[in-house]
Computed example of a mutant assay.
Amino acid sequence: MTIPLSVLDLAPISAGSTPQQAIRNSIDLARHAESLGYHRFWVAEHHFVKVASAAPATLIGLIAAATESIRVGSAAVQLGHHTSISVVEAFGTIDALYPGRLDLGLGRSGHRGDQLRSAGVPPVPAPGRPTEVRDGVVIPPPFFPGQLLDFSRVRAGLGALHLPGAQPLPYTDQIEDILALLDGTYVTPDGVDLHAIPGEGADIQPWLFGSSGGESAQLAGRLGLPFAANYHVSPGTIVETVEAYRNGFRPSARFPRPYLVVSADVVVAEDDATAQRLASTYGHWVYSIRSGAGAAEYLDPETAPPLPDQQRRLVDDRITTQFVGSPATVAGRLEALRKLTGADEIVVTSVTFDHADRVRSHRLLAREWGLTPQVRAA
């Protein structure tokens, strides 16, 4: 039986386009994803960069209003930028009108490279293991956060997102507070009962997201929550991430066994050569992120020059683990990823310069994967 396939959207802004058009494109893609039979449609959270998903709860509400049945959610709300109550109330407000459709994906926030550098960790790690292929899945060396070239914008962005002097709570504490607010069992440290209205009792499914075998994977396991492992962000750590979640899993009322989603970055076209051309500026985009400048506008493959070798070396792990090709090529690689990780579901993200190419990519993959098209109500 084919496992579910879902969509993660970053609301990318193409060169020459606008944030307003990117948001319209995301809503259009969500409608297509629903009609094509995708199971979920998730949006990311990014700030001060050339993607339009800075306010995930707002965007999720717009997408829920524009669709009928597909699950919608965050991948993920960056908890260091929000209070627990603001997250629960925002999602509770959406659930009031679209009950039973929301996935509340929660993730850590803030780049840890500053902490690594201030602690004296070298910006480039010692040579590690070489790239390997396990059962058809490329596993490159892990990317080390200290390899970012410039942290000035990261520091400035984090400063702008936080109130002066404010410090985020420990991640585990925030997760537990959010679960308590949803359940109606939240009590302040000084013993006062508080209730999230709206939010308490909402039919919202919490998820945790992670790119390593650290706190997020372990906490999702301990709490018996579903977990999303970010192969598309950190392909070099996928095996230990999945193992940490599974090894630490404790059954919960809703999930008697682990439920794992694994992400992949894909570009699908009618043939391998066309897909490779459409994906040829992906490395430029990833380099803009890893240079420290943040995600830039996505470049037109027809006019952008090739990525210089020195820049490519910084992003080679992401280029080699992007799933690019014909429907059969990409579906075959996704199946290999499923087998390696034991994923219960795959979530795909796709970035192309032309929105029509992105829609076509999802359509071709849905057909090859065997998704059942949905008919919207009249």
Rank of each mutant, 00 (worst) to 15 (best):
E68K: 14
A76N: 07
I94H: 08
E89N: 15
L62S: 14
G73V: 13
R71P: 08
L79M: 13
P122S: 13
F91K: 08
T93E: 07
L102P: 15
G113S: 10
Q115T: 14
T93N: 13
D95F: 12
A96F: 00
E68N: 13
S109R: 03
G105V: 07
S69P: 11
H111E: 11
S109C: 02
D103I: 13
A90F: 02
A57F: 04
P56M: 05
S86C: 01
Q78N: 11
Q115W: 05
L104W: 08
V87S: 12
V51H: 06
V124C: 06
A119D: 13
R117H: 01
L116W: 03
T93Q: 13
T58N: 11
P56G: 02
A54R: 08
S86E: 02
G61S: 12
P99Y: 06
G92E: 06
L97E: 08
D114T: 05
D103M: 06
A52V: 09
A55N: 13
A75E: 05
I70H: 13
Q78M: 14
G73M: 12
V124D: 12
T83Y: 04
I60Y: 10
A76W: 05
V124N: 14
A57T: 11
G73K: 08
F91P: 12
S109F: 00
A57S: 14
T67V: 14
A65G: 14
V77Q: 00
P122F: 01
G61K: 04
S86Y: 01
R101M: 09
T67D: 11
L59Q: 13
G120D: 05
D95W: 11
H81M: 14
G110E: 04
P122D: 10
T67Y: 15
H111T: 05
E89D: 14
R71V: 09
A66R: 08
V124Q: 15
T58E: 11
A90K: 06
A57C: 06
D114W: 03
L59N: 10
L106S: 03
G120C: 08
S84G: 00
F91E: 04
T67Q: 12
R112S: 10
V121W: 07
